[in-house]
Write a protein that binds this DNA or RNA. Sequence first.
DNA 1: ATGACTCGCTAATGCGCATTATCACCAGGA
DNA 2: TCCTGGTGATAATGCGCATTAGCGAGTCAT
Lengths: 323, 323
Amino acid sequence: MAGVSQTTVSLVLNGRADGEVRISLETRDRVLQVIRETGYVADPVARRLADRRNRILGVFTYEAVFPAESADFYHPFLVGIEECAEEAGCDLLLFTSAKVVEGERRRIFSSESRIRLADGCVLLGRTVDRGDLARLLSENVPFVSVGRRDDAGGPVPYVGADYPRAVRALVERAAALGHRRIAYVGAGLGAESLADRLRGFTEGVAATGAEGVRLPSADGLFDSGATAVLTEELADGVAIVQAARERGLAVPDELSVLVLGANTTPVHTDIDFTGFHIPRREMGRRAVELLTQVLESGGAPRELLPCELIEGSTLAPVQNEER
Amino acid sequence: MAGVSQTTVSLVLNGRADGEVRISLETRDRVLQVIRETGYVADPVARRLADRRNRILGVFTYEAVFPAESADFYHPFLVGIEECAEEAGCDLLLFTSAKVVEGERRRIFSSESRIRLADGCVLLGRTVDRGDLARLLSENVPFVSVGRRDDAGGPVPYVGADYPRAVRALVERAAALGHRRIAYVGAGLGAESLADRLRGFTEGVAATGAEGVRLPSADGLFDSGATAVLTEELADGVAIVQAARERGLAVPDELSVLVLGANTTPVHTDIDFTGFHIPRREMGRRAVELLTQVLESGGAPRELLPCELIEGSTLAPVQNEER
DNA sequence: ATGACTCGCTAATGCGCATTATCACCAGGA
DNA sequence: TCCTGGTGATAATGCGCATTAGCGAGTCAT
């Protein structure tokens, strides 16, 4: 329509009419005019095949994003991801097709995997399959994990929350308030995020000289002699407060209860727990920023974002009287 | 690695080794073996370029999907959309890049529009630009709108909520309880969904012989002599109940307040309004189903889903005493 | 007039796949 | 021997773009 070659259109479209290749202003305007009239848009697929960027970022989650159960978990991250993608002019591809078998969780790699359609990918999930990570690395798929991940045949690019620092800070606070015997309730392993919390705890008690008590569940808590307890799960925190009150133990005066941010099981409470805030939205934003960086210059950037401490009202100075 | 041609691999990979084309079992197994060993996955981009199908469904929204303000509105639809896409083995592409200018709403068509990357597109929004709709139609972009839309140079494929029927049913209920003067508070125009509500109202009063009073806002309500009021917005409903109580009017005994499902302004209330439920999730599901259908056989399917009436506690028989 | 150079554009190629037409081979019948 | 038919594979092509080498025309200096 403009009486020029496909090449010329391509050049005009990509603003490559500078330096090496030249297109006269006249021709350029003619092409642009026709493009405007017809609303022509280059096929992104062909574009991508010819090895140019798509401006599409993949978002992989092991569970559905929207349903209520997982929405609470994923939502804050996604707010940040969407914000940042919008600013970067990128579209988001949700890999909803990844479920092969009903009842199972999604899989990153399947025979029909489309991760490669995206320029890069943000990985979201409480835990991530180690094999998947290793394969992403070895196949050179550009990606960034939201949440710290251990090496998987190589360093994994991630943006995580600085749990060790946050938990340690809480322990130090408790110690400063006179607590000498502090319990940690939770698995402390499985996911990196849990291991990190436990590490923060261990470091904290070591640094303050307090005595740390590890408990897999809240069961032995009241016999442990602890005056403060840190719990991974919000739900556990609620349960502990409940149980304490039933035993006539005042919270926080007789038992301080700190919550370490995990919120797997949805639970309602209006208790204003002392603990910290996981900067989920910021993590989402940063993940996209790092992904952009990876796309441009490669590498495996790793970053921990600080968690803001929440004052709350479940931490109090230890009582002086012996229990 | 298997000592065969690219063609053979393609055939094996796509299970095309039947009927027309034949591959010996021996060769097939050898190829499959290598595929398993190497974890080879066909490049989805090239695949799409070659056969013009992506199994990617676009989701266009005029505002960001995730942030809290719009999340309440979009979320239920998206649950349905994701569910259905997962079942259909499709990925979802969120057009987050559509925002060209900060502060403005997104646009479907821009110079960089990537809608065509998806096989088809689901359109989500309180209102949709008529020009955009017309262009989608004329450019033959397969799409389905969530929410009924007026023709735009042709019939627009949609799945909507049957507001006329639901509103009419509410009017009839009110009339059956003795209400003879019924008010409608709201714009009743602008978006199709509002026009549909108003139409249901008009039909309802006509059918029952009641007297309909239209009010653009709640202002003149208490002078109108209406014993029952229908309001588009939940927020308005809350405000009306509040105002009524301040005037010493009991709800529902002296004034029935029915809410027509719109929930633009987020508002907290524990009033159990009589009204109806918009089947948002089901609309999302159905939209994807219709889109699939459009992709397969074209056409412009249009469908209205019934709204379930909510009994609630803000509708009561009219008092016999004259006011 | 001839070479050197610039300007503006295009032909040709490749990306990785799906698809189609075709080919080499062997067996069996005339 | 020649033909037919079936079997199992492949060479070639195109999808729509980006990229690169190169071409014709004009300009300028020698």
